[in-house]
Simulated assay, not measured.
Amino acid sequence: MPSSTARGGHGPEEQAEEPALLRAENARLRKAGKEWQLDRKIVRAGAGGGGDKLPGVAEPPPL
């Protein structure tokens, strides 16, 4: 009978690595989410999307 790893299952080594891989993936997704939120703020501010002010960015002078 083949072992669980030969059938594509999770052997003890894979089970031990999985939490570390999941933590790394979660960290990557959190970073991507923060970058996406910043991009969204920049686009909204550029489009005059009201309410989303970028910290440290001055308002343009009136025309």
Rank of each mutant, 00 (worst) to 15 (best):
M1A: 05
P2S: 09
P2K: 14
S3T: 08
S4D: 07
T5C: 04
T5F: 00
T5Y: 02
T5H: 05
T5E: 01
A6W: 03
A6R: 07
A6C: 06
R7W: 10
G8N: 08
G8Q: 02
G8L: 11
H10L: 13
P12G: 10
P12N: 04
P12Q: 12
P12F: 03
Q15A: 11
A16P: 05
E17C: 12
E17G: 10
E18N: 04
E18R: 10
P19L: 15
P19G: 02
P19T: 10
P19C: 08
A20Y: 08
A20W: 15
A20R: 12
A20C: 02
L22F: 03
A24C: 01
A24K: 12
A24G: 12
A24M: 04
E25Y: 05
E25H: 05
E25P: 13
N26S: 12
N26M: 05
N26Q: 14
A27D: 03
A27L: 06
R28D: 02
R28M: 07
R28C: 02
R28L: 05
L29N: 12
L29C: 00
R30P: 00
R30D: 06
K31E: 09
G33T: 07
K34N: 11
K34M: 07
K34Y: 05
E35G: 04
E35Y: 15
E35P: 15
E35M: 15
E35F: 03
W36N: 13
Q37W: 11
Q37S: 11
L38C: 02
D39K: 13
D39W: 04
D39H: 14
D39F: 03
R40I: 04
R40T: 11
R40C: 13
K41R: 09
I42E: 01
V43W: 10
V43E: 12
V43P: 13
V43F: 10
R44C: 03
R44F: 03
G46M: 05
A47M: 03
A47T: 03
A47P: 06
A47Y: 04
G49E: 15
G50P: 09
G50F: 13
G50A: 10
G51D: 15
D52N: 09
D52V: 09
P55V: 01
P55Y: 05
G56E: 00
G56I: 00
V57N: 14
V57Q: 02
A58S: 02
E59W: 15
P60C: 03
P60D: 00
P60N: 04
P60S: 00
P61K: 15
P61Q: 14
L63C: 11
